Simulated assay, not measured.
Amino acid sequence: AGFGELPGAEPYPCRNVDQNVADLRAQLAANAKGASELKRMASHFGLPTVTAYMRHVQDNAEESVRRAISALRSGEFDYHMDNGARVKVKASIDLATRSATVDFTGTSAQLSSNFNAPSAVCRAAVMYVFRTLVDEKIPMNEGCLRPIELVIPEGCMLSPRYPAAVVAGNVETSQVVTDAIYGALGVMGAAQGTMNNLTFGNERYQYYETVCGGSGAGDGFDGTDAVHTHMTNSRLTDPEVLEFRYPVTLESFGIRKGSGGAGKHKGGDGTTRRIRFNEAMTVCMLSNRRKVPPYGMAGGQPGECGRNWVEREDGTVVPMEACDTVHVAPGDVFVLQTPSGGGFGEVASSD
């Protein structure tokens, strides 16, 4: 069989083989272009010069992170998920060496669900957090991790053993890890803590989006309303494009005013999104923070949990869990309320 035929030959085939193959070819082409440009740069400047600059970029990142570590304090945090799992992290700061140890001992053991995360995901979240604490404009690179010792116990949900399911680890557990590290360092309230992964489709259409919510507040700044936070960086499809390509109507999409956690600095507000279906579809949600709210920090109040449900055309309301599947008919409306960010600092007394 040809390459394009293989994905459709399995018991549970891809429903849009041509689109998936086109995506793979685009990734291969992008990698080939990157390799070509790297060779061209080495040819133009000489390999020793290119290597020296690469080394400088990493050395500079290392020093920038060490300076950021100098302003931090040690701490630990225990952050629970809606499914009962927990991410426990202890951040130990050594001011003498300007280094840190980030230890996930005590995190839940490998799960039977797909919320396990490969250790590479946890490592990426750690690097991301410490990069965000650097004020300088430096590119993300391996040098950011040089001052950090990472401890991830083998067999926990952040370093699972084969054949653990991990699909939610990259999109959901990564968010929990990120917020847990910020909590241990005490620098800001939690963001919405989920990507709100929404998929819907039938035999002809398939669609996937992640939906923004509130970011956490910190010392000296409010959280941001309706923004993709931390480990998600995708943009939503324009309403006109969504409605042109799929048999749906975007009834509304707006900010949930006042939903952010209260505090000296307020957490960012979440959003409400309503999608009406014009054909029968299957709707799936993969999310978190429907039971455990995003935490507030330093006396700030937690953000609000998210919710999702379906409003049938006859007026019946069908509640949905954080991870759930529901079949919709023409005229049914899916409603998503995304979580808001946690506040930072106590609200000043009116006395």
Rank of each mutant, 00 (worst) to 15 (best):
C323Y: 00
M297N: 00
G303Y: 02
E321I: 01
A298M: 03
V317S: 07
P319A: 08
R290D: 00
T316S: 11
Y295E: 12
A322G: 11
G300K: 02
V317I: 15
E304W: 01
T316M: 10
D324Y: 13
T316I: 05
V317N: 01
P319E: 08
A298V: 05
E313W: 11
R307V: 08
G300R: 04
G299S: 06
G315S: 04
T325V: 14
W309P: 01
R289Y: 07
N308Q: 15
N308T: 11
V317C: 09
N288V: 06
M320I: 02
R307E: 15
R312L: 05
E321M: 12
V310G: 07
M320P: 00
G306C: 10
G299Y: 04
G296T: 12
Y295C: 03
A322W: 06
G299V: 10
P319G: 03
T316D: 05
V318I: 15
R290C: 09
A322V: 00
H327N: 15
V317F: 02
H327C: 11
E313G: 02
N288E: 15
T325G: 02
Q301V: 07
R290K: 07
D324Q: 11
M297G: 00
P294R: 04
K291M: 05
N308D: 14
N288P: 09
E311A: 09
T316Y: 01
V310R: 06
N288A: 09
V310N: 11
E313L: 13
E313N: 10
R312Q: 10
V292G: 01
G296S: 11
V292W: 00
G296Q: 06
R289W: 02
G303T: 03
V292R: 02
W309K: 06
T325W: 00
M297Y: 00
N308F: 02
M320S: 04
